[in-house]
Simulated assay, not measured.
Amino acid sequence: MTEDARPVSRSRSIMTELVFPTDTNHHGTMFGGTLMKYIDKISAIAAMRHSNKPVVTASTDSLDFLSPIRMGEAVELEAFVTSTHRSSMEVYVVVRAENLFTGERRVTCTAFSTFVAVDENGKPVPVPAAIPENEAEQKLFDSAPERYDLRKKRRSQRYSSTE
């Protein structure tokens, strides 16, 4: 990690979209793949804000769909860097749906992704440490080493029929 550490708030990024019929499946709820695209996009923005570098997605580990998002609702994604290693950053995303007519809001999905900062040749470069600023961020920061270890273990257990 570089010497300069940065507060989590520096990376906090929010994206809001309206769910249209073309974003939905035959149940009238948002396609999971569309939401995954949004999660990757907002996560990359948060990682670039933190590192001030181009980034690449290294993994998306936990993507938990908690409730459906319906056509006509607004979907809000909030992302921020929770912890870092030498060149990698863990990004947490919480997705909320909002009924714009009633104001009802609910958490619909949470996700953790890992991004790596790269130079102009695509080689990993060091990133600043993340400094949690509140209790929720501190909990995510404190639990990050366990998620990191699980990612490493999962990578060591990969299987490919072509190897």
Rank of each mutant, 00 (worst) to 15 (best):
T60K: 00
P68D: 13
R49M: 03
Y92P: 04
A44G: 15
M36E: 03
T60D: 02
A74T: 13
F112M: 08
D119L: 13
R151F: 05
V118D: 01
D40F: 11
E133C: 08
S9F: 09
S43K: 00
S156V: 06
I45Y: 05
V55S: 03
R86N: 12
E3L: 13
S67L: 08
R155W: 03
Q157K: 06
H50Y: 01
D40I: 11
V56R: 07
R49T: 09
S13M: 09
S160A: 11
M36R: 07
Q157F: 01
Q138V: 08
R106G: 10
V55M: 01
T24P: 00
V19H: 00
G28P: 00
L66I: 14
E17F: 09
K53H: 12
S13G: 07
P124W: 04
P132V: 05
G28K: 07
A74N: 07
V8P: 03
F141E: 01
N99T: 10
F31R: 06
E146G: 06
A136V: 14
M48E: 11
N52D: 14
I42D: 09
R155A: 13
R154Y: 00
S62Y: 11
M36G: 08
L66Q: 15
L63K: 04
A117M: 08
E163T: 14
I39V: 15
F20L: 15
L140Q: 01
D23F: 04
D119A: 10
E120R: 15
R147E: 04
A46N: 02
G103K: 03
Y38M: 14
K139L: 15
T29D: 07
N121D: 14
T110P: 02
